[in-house]
Simulated scan of single mutants.
Amino acid sequence: MRFETLSVFPQVFAPYLDESIMGRAQRKGVFDFEAFDLRRWTHDRHNTVDDAPFGGGQGMLMKPEPIYEAVDEISSMGEGRPYIVFFSPCGRRYDESCAERLAGEERVLLVCGRYEGMDERAYELADEVFSLGDYVLTGGELAALVVIDSVVRLLPGALGDDMSAKDESFSGSLLEYAQYTRPAEYRGMGVPDVLLSGDHGAVDRWRRRNAIERTALWRPDLLKGADLTPEELAFVREVIQRSNGGGDVDE
């Protein structure tokens, strides 16, 4: 898989993507990456990528011309047109299902905004527009790194254990179960006995129940997409009722 970014700060990506899991995945050929500098597609001596908005207002907007020219040229490079992603507060909320879908693409181009945003016409280039959440960043570079990281770890061979990415939070619409490591006792806090029992079946059952409990307490909205047995649904109602101090449970 190939990732490309278009940004006025192309140098910010390598320090993260060249290290740890991302770096190893690149060296193993799981994915490759190239960062393009938007200023390469400007035509004035100041390499201007922004201008004042029509109608007035604070800040500057990214101009459409460099973005269009850059996307056109980058799209013509290599094999096959990239799947083009932009970022905006108006976009779809990015989640694990989005990452799973992008992992099926051969080539993804992430276009990173800056300043007060982009000329609205630039978004016509996008195959999809994402929002990471209800907050504002100074630019799209961090958002692009989040997307790349979340997708790469789903690719075969990226983690060194193809099952590990399938057993984490948001896989199967549940948060991940609690995990512990040595020492078994620390500052008066212990580890659940079942995890020390050596009974793998019991451990699996505890993990499933713990994942359901944590999801019910912290992200009950996720349970709508979870495949739960009648017994597990009854457990969810019990957990929520306890957390409400014994009050009624909203269905």
Results as ranks from 00 to 15, higher is better:
Met1Phe: 04
Met1Pro: 06
Phe3Ala: 02
Leu6Cys: 14
Gln11His: 10
Val12Trp: 06
Leu17Phe: 08
Glu19Gln: 14
Glu19Leu: 13
Ile21Ser: 04
Met22Ala: 11
Gly23Ser: 13
Ala25Asn: 01
Gln26Val: 01
Arg27Asp: 09
Lys28Trp: 09
Phe31Gln: 10
Ala35Thr: 01
Asp37Ile: 13
Arg39Tyr: 11
Trp41Gly: 00
His43Val: 02
His46Asn: 08
Asn47Met: 10
Val49Asp: 08
Gly56Asn: 05
Leu61Pro: 03
Leu61Ile: 15
Pro64Val: 15
Glu65Lys: 00
Glu73Thr: 09
Ser75Tyr: 00
Gly80Ser: 11
Gly80Gln: 08
Arg81Cys: 09
Pro82Phe: 00
Pro82Arg: 11
Tyr83Arg: 14
Phe87Glu: 03
Gly91Tyr: 02
Glu96Pro: 02
Gly104Ile: 15
Glu106Arg: 13
Glu106Asp: 13
Arg107Val: 03
Leu110Gln: 00
Val111Thr: 05
Gly113Glu: 11
Gly113Ser: 08
Gly117Arg: 02
Glu120Tyr: 11
Ala122Met: 06
Ala122Thr: 15
Tyr123His: 12
Glu124Arg: 15
Asp127Thr: 11
Asp127Arg: 03
Glu128Asp: 14
Val129Cys: 15
Val129Pro: 12
Ser131Ile: 09
Gly133Pro: 13
Gly133Asp: 12
Gly133Trp: 11
Asp134Asn: 15
Thr138Tyr: 10
Gly140Ser: 08
Glu141Trp: 06
Leu142Phe: 06
Ala144His: 06
Val146Asp: 04
Val147Asn: 04
Val147His: 03
Val151Asp: 01
Val152Pro: 05
Ala158Met: 09
Asp161Trp: 07
Ser173Asn: 13
Glu176Ala: 15
Tyr177Ala: 14
Tyr177Leu: 09
Tyr180Glu: 14
Thr181Asp: 10
Tyr186Asn: 04
Gly188Pro: 07
Met189Leu: 15
Val191Gln: 02
Asp193Asn: 05
Leu195Ser: 07
Leu196Thr: 08
His200Gly: 14
Ala202Met: 07
Val203Cys: 06
Arg205His: 11
Asn210Lys: 14
Glu213Arg: 14
Arg214Met: 12
Thr215Pro: 01
Trp218Lys: 14
Arg219Ile: 08
Gly225Met: 04
Gly225Ile: 07
Gly225Pro: 06
Glu232Cys: 13
Phe235Tyr: 12
Val239His: 02
Asn244Gly: 02
Gly246Phe: 00
Gly247Ile: 02
Val249Phe: 05
Glu251Ser: 12
